[in-house]
Design a protein around this nucleic acid. Structure first.
Lengths: 157, 157
DNA sequence: GGAAATTAGTTGCGTTTGCAACTATTCTTG
DNA sequence: CAAGAATAGTTGCAAACGCAACTAATTTCC
């Protein structure tokens, strides 16, 4: 029982590496963005999700799902983005409960401004170390894991 | 410029899947632990790091590095673990600035109690969807990424 | 051998998170 | 078509985090 692996022989090496790599890389990326005086990564995620969406807008719950955040956290993240002028709220015409998060032109500009710094991080820390084959294999494997975790049938990444 | 990929042709699919998979899986695992009335995952990480360490103890900064946490956050995480009786602080004899975090027997028991629930999560959400080959390839790739990010030359995972 | 720089760990403070409760609207179905 | 259930989004509050400042001990090196 000293070593978890001994019990029913499950190897957790990949999982442990997955977690640690994520933690280390995220820490580095956030630090880089901070030095460049750019907003945190989650802002990028929201801006990019909106940029890809039809009419540059998504309902709050869609946005929350898209960036994998709880509703309440997304509410407040959008508060901050709205305060910064990067996103606007628009009430939904067809559902009076609902609201859209809408990308502003300043939000689009910020997404584009953040991208080079972010892309360089991804390349330097991640892509650079992966062969095309490895990328293909990881895409397949992660896709499968993600779809299973989300009970399949979800749209984009 | 609409699509980041178009610029200097860097494919960020793997990275995006990596991030999203991490977020979704962590959310599920934390929820499972909570339902089982078990402490959060980071407690497990600390307990397990100490359990593997010689004499079940590590200096605070080693522990911080081992679980990829800032010093100040580790200080307070250990505060909580100490309050729960799972870890003790011990001042270092050879360096009067220093302190050890030491696993208590209650801490060891808790680690063992958490493991089955955690292991089941890992298997169900992660391992189950990976072939041995895929695991091997991911291990190699992640190891390489992690070592590079940490300027190589770091011990255990 | 002693001033300056470095390292270990903690703490204060403002920000962000997580959870549960809450309002308001829409859907269900008897 | 009305009562109850479900869904959308926000908010209050306590816990946790990130950063910079702080104390204390150790190392460097002139």
């Amino acid at each position: 029982m000293r070593n978890p692996k001994s019990k029913s022989t499950v190897s957790t090496t990949t999982w442990a590496l997955f977690l640690t790599t994520h933690a280390v890389l995220l820490e580095k990326i956030e630090a880089t963005l901070k030095v460049a005086e750019l907003p945190p990564l989650e802002w990028y995620d929201v801006l990019w999700a909106l940029e890809r969406a039809p009419q540059h807008r998504l309902r709050m719950h869609e946005l929350a799902h898209s960036v994998v955040l709880s509703r309440s956290n997304l509410t407040r993240l959008v508060d901050r983005l709205e305060a910064a002028g990067l996103v606007e709220r628009q009430s939904a015409a067809d559902d009076k409960r609902g609201a859209y998060g809408v990308l502003t032109s300043a939000g689009l500009a910020m997404r584009e401004k953040m991208w080079p710094a972010y892309r360089d991080c991804i390349v330097d820390l991640f892509n650079q170390h992966l062969s095309k084959d490895e990328q293909g294999i990881m895409n397949g494997a992660l896709r499968r894991i993600l779809d299973a975790a989300r009970d399949s049938a979800d749209e984009g990444i």
